[in-house]
Design a protein around this nucleic acid. Sequence first.
DNA 1: ATGAGTATAATACAGTCGCA
DNA 2: TGCGACTGTATTATACTCAT
Length: 234
Amino acid sequence: MQQMLAALTDADRLEVYNQLKAEYGIHPMEAHLKLTSDEILSALQKMKEQNGMPWRMLRGSLADLVYGVVVLPGLNGWSDVSFNGDMPYDYLLRSDAGEEVTVQIKLQRSEAGQPLEAKKNLGKDMFVVETQRTRGGKKGEKKTRPYRFGDFDLLAVSMFPSTGRWETYMYTVAKWLLPHPSEEGCLNTFQPVAKTPNADWTDSLEQAIEWLKSGQQKTITISTGPPSQQKLDL
DNA sequence: ATGAGTATAATACAGTCGCA
DNA sequence: TGCGACTGTATTATACTCAT
């Protein structure tokens, strides 16, 4: 077969490619949008070059959606419960025993295309995640841009910006996150994320669920690293 | 009851401003 | 002047209010 193809002219090879693609390769999304995959990808390329909101949004949505496709199917004893309506969490998981856990997915914060390193107020050798909604609204007098403690159980941070792999996430218990200094009951806008698993952050969803079920109360630590470097910057 | 208009939700990074 | 906090941005869908 390879020899057969190699014997064809370039024009014929393209013809074969196009015919086979028409026969087998139409993704439902291509049919739905009435665009070829190449046209869709070219449009996305343009979106990336504009580097505006739509591109950022797409990346954030990918971190969310890929989670349901790549991570959750491998989780034993829990199922991904679909729901409708606007919820402050992205996933609702239900165990075989009927326990429910909610998960909010966020993309690790980048700046100028590079993973953002925490400044000293968020700790040394930490990455950053932004725990506020993209746009703000108001419900009465209350701002709806920040998340509130209790909005979701676990925070999953997609580490794609630093690992280059969509299937890598770091988890912590939402109640352990830093509180906002002025907005009562809200999460701080920025949170430090450990680069490697520690007592606050884990790369295992099962571990995070255990932490949650343990009911342990604490706040994530700002500083990591060897004790010699744990001196507080006062 | 229905249409118009408004508010708010979801998605992340960049720009600006105030303060030390 | 550099850090950190805050706000602005594109887009679409839906829910709600208010007037006819």
